[in-house]
């Protein structure tokens, strides 16, 4: 099956309640990202928050589902990852 159909991820993410942590809980060493050929974070992030734009990695902490996939796959240790502070981040109502 062709897996590459357009998925309206924005509509899926719109169903979520979030309380963003003003202090970003994921810090990216974008210098290291420049060396990265595979960029697995752009594939595995279930919220599509890692985007390769014009030769640089961009990332947005808001909308994070806190699964930790990105830190598991990052081959260059470029992702400094922790959970948002207590009470912040995603709030699943139907988890």
């Amino acid at each position: 099956m062709e897996e590459g159909h357009d998925v309206r991820l924005d509509l899926k993410l719109d169903t979520l309640v979030q309380k963003p942590d003003p202090e970003p809980h994921i810090v990216l060493d974008t210098e290291r990202c420049l060396m990265c050929q595979e960029r697995p974070c752009t594939i595995v992030c279930p919220a599509g928050l890692y985007v390769w734009v014009d030769g640089a990695m961009t990332h947005n902490c808001d909308g994070c589902l806190e699964c930790g996939s990105c830190r598991v796959v990052c081959p260059h240790g470029a992702i400094e990852w922790r959970y948002p502070r207590g009470g912040h981040g995603v709030r699943y109502r139907w988890g």
Binding site: H5, P40, P46
Partner: peptide, 21 residues
């Protein structure tokens, strides 16, 4: 996760393909 990575397919697309089955 290594299968997602090797196949180059995000999880939400796997799910969307299932919805279309």
């Amino acid at each position: 996760v290594d299968v997602l990575q090797a196949c180059g397919v995000p999880a939400y697309e796997v799910l969307a393909a299932r919805e279309r089955h």
